[in-house]
Design a protein around this nucleic acid. Structure first.
Length: 625
DNA sequence: CTTAGGAAACTTTTT
DNA sequence: GTTTCCTAAG
């Protein structure tokens, strides 16, 4: 068995798998078999060292990575370890078990707010403070950054920031109260409260520390401060820590990632370092381009630079083509795909874009050429208005404290309950929105509509969790939702009704499996863009960020133009520009055999033609073509 | 007080 | 191309 686990690993990978007794950081270049090392390490610990699988904790960046790791381990071991999850979903597990020990209003059935939900709450608060709601995004960023740095008082932390950030301290406090009253947590809260729970409560900390013999962390370069704290709290005195990462694939500093956590990990845990430099993914020519880009990275980790090499003899294909405009660029891509499709499945092809709006030009051309495609980023199924409306209804029925859901649905379909009426309702709120609607001062007409709303919601309260499908069907007819769609959306109402029926199929399946509605909501909220990549035979269009950790035989990188890649916003800031370069590196290294780059001299932006300049990156790599 | 319709403003990247 | 903002009419 030992041979089977270590078989097929190169000496560097083997050393990383076999290393025991001290924390270890493995610096793993793109395509160097990082996931392989992680999975084989877990298999090795179980088979060779006799660790019990449920005592191993592995933390990944996306759910997709977690699932992939789980699949591979099941293939090697035929055992399913329990604790392979993302930072967020791990924290949800901690909180579902122990949140009541936090001494707050939260209970175990708390709901998770996505970005839209939390912005909705935040906008209300800004209005109350007489601040322009345009600032909701800024306020959210300040609050989010504050939570990520983990201070015991968010209010004090924000107050001490330089103006204008400091002006959001009261807003942050009101936001915190509002979410707690709604029994709701946003993405940052999940980690923040888990860390608070573990750091303030020694018994709970001891309990969780005692559960794991070994902790492994993937994509360490993209962890942030609070995630580092979480690892520290979970590790305790344990020396059995293992992390992998790559400075040059750090692409989330704008979201609080701290690549310096790698150095901190080595210093604070006394970790040893190893490198994986052999690439098993790409051809020599593709790696040549990647290495050129990396060699130009100017940063203080340049001593960590990894020069990737391969003994892959395949020629592969790389090409760059300049176009007059975005339409001819898309046409060129479409024709290339048509030719490739004679011997390559569509699902082996990906188009990686810097900004989501770039997908539109591609979409219209692909439709004309009959090329099956799917867009991974952008408006996903669960972001569609009609789906969010109905899920908010179900959420509200299940939890009448849910403020974001309440605000979304109270006037959908139109009940004549507008801004003024909602603010009246808010005034009579104690701990349940249904009671607030009942108590609020309303006009006779509004009262009539509001009472009907209350009656409908109450009639499903006992059935929503166990019978979400039946509830949805009843609800849609009770509130006349299809009529609402026909009235609001006219010509594309048919598509939207179709979406609702798709949702009902999903819920029907759920109901047949006997899975509760609350669990379904959680799975969808914590799913990443990557998780939505279907297995169907289609060309995938996705952002470079969403492509992290993935690979395809054929990769297109269109719109390699100044102001797009690197993006206009990064130009004023040296470290942002460095991140763009790393992102370009990530893009190139997704390709296994064929890499096609292109740019256009003009492109539609904001519905108007803009002239574009070729990206600086093209100059740097042009000797490769 | 609400709603409809047109004008203005806006798009990095997302767990 | 799309969301949100603003104003005037119901």
């Amino acid at each position: 068995m030992k041979d089977k686990i270590l078989e097929g690993l190169n000496p560097q990978q083997k050393a990383a798998v076999e290393h025991l007794g001290s924390p270890l950081f493995v610096s793993a270049g793109a395509g160097s078999g990082k996931t392989k090392v992680l999975t084989h390490k877990i298999a090795y610990l179980v088979k060779e060292k006799g660790l019990r699988p449920h005592r191993i904790l592995a933390i990944t960046f996306t759910k997709k990575a977690a699932n992939e790791m789980l699949d591979r381990i099941v293939r090697i071991l035929a055992i399913k370890p329990m604790w392979i999850s993302t930072f967020h979903s791990f924290c949800v597990k901690v909180l579902r078990e122990d949140v009541h020990k936090l001494g707050k209003l939260f209970n175990r059935s708390f709901v998770i707010y996505d970005t839209t939900d939390s912005l909705r709450v935040l906008k209300d608060i800004l209005k109350r403070f007489n601040i322009d709601t345009k600032e909701s995004g800024d306020a959210r960023d300040v609050i989010s950054k504050a939570k990520q740095s983990y201070r015991s008082s968010i209010f004090d932390y924000i107050s001490a920031l330089p103006y204008p950030a400091s002006s959001y301290a009261d807003v942050a406090e009101a936001y915190r109260e509002a979410l707690e009253r709604s029994n709701a947590m946003d993405y940052d809260d999940l980690i923040y409260f888990a860390v608070e729970l573990l750091s303030t409560n020694p018994e709970i900390r001891a309990k969780w520390q005692g559960r794991f013999d070994h902790i492994l962390i993937d994509e360490f370069q993209d962890t942030n401060d609070i995630q580092f704290s979480l690892i520290k709290l979970l590790a305790g005195q344990s020396r059995n820590l293992f992390a992998v990462g790559d400075f040059f694939q750090c692409i989330y500093t704008w979201r609080g990632s701290r690549p310096s956590n790698i150095e901190r990990f080595i210093r604070e845990f006394g970790a040893r370092e190893m490198k994986l430099e052999k690439n098993y993914r790409s051809t020599q020519r593709i790696l040549g381009v990647a290495n050129t880009i990396v060699s130009k990275v100017e940063c203080r980790w340049s001593d960590k630079a990894i020069e990737l090499y391969t003994d892959n003899e395949e020629e592969g294909d790389i090409e760059y083509k300049s176009h007059d405009d975005a339409v001819s660029e898309s046409g060129w891509i479409a024709r290339k795909i048509q030719r490739l499709s004679q011997h390559t499945p569509y699902s082996d092809i990906a188009i990686l874009i810097r900004m989501t709006f770039l997908s539109r030009a591609l979409e219209s051309v692909f439709m004309r050429y009959n090329i099956p495609y799917s867009i991974v980023s952008g408006v996903s199924f669960y972001d569609r208005a009609e789906i969010k409306d109905l899920l908010s209804y179900l959420r509200f029925i299940a939890n009448p404290r849910d403020a974001a859901a309440f605000e979304r649905i109270i006037n959908i379909p139109g009940r004549g309950i507008g801004k003024k009426a909602i603010s009246n309702i808010r005034e009579s709120y104690k701990d349940d929105w249904l009671q607030a609607i009942g108590d609020a001062k309303l006009t006779a007409k509004q009262r009539h509509a509001a009472d009907a709303f209350i009656k409908t919601v109450r009639s499903y309260q006992d059935s929503v969790d166990a019978e979400p499908y039946m509830t949805l069907m009843g609800l849609v007819s009770d509130i006349g939702y299809f009529d609402h769609l026909k009235k609001e959306y006219k010509e594309d109402s048919e598509d939207r009704i179709e979406n609702v029926s798709e949702l009902s199929n999903v819920l029907q399946e759920l109901e047949e499996e006997g899975k509760p509605f609350s669990e379904f909501m959680e799975d969808n909220l914590l799913a990443s863009e990557q998780d939505k990549i279907g297995k169907e035979n289609s060309v995938k269009i996705l952002t470079l960020h969403a492509a992290k950790g993935l690979e395809w035989p054929v990769v297109f990188l269109p719109a390699i133009e100044e102001d797009i890649f690197p993006s206009a916003r990064s130009l004023t800031n040296e470290s942002a520009l460095e991140e763009e370069r790393r992102l370009f590196y990530v893009g190139i290294t997704r390709a296994k055999q064929r890499l096609y780059l292109s740019s256009a001299d003009s492109r539609m932006k904001f519905g108007q033609t803009s002239f574009m300049m070729k990206s600086r990156y093209l100059r740097e790599i042009k000797h490769h073509f």
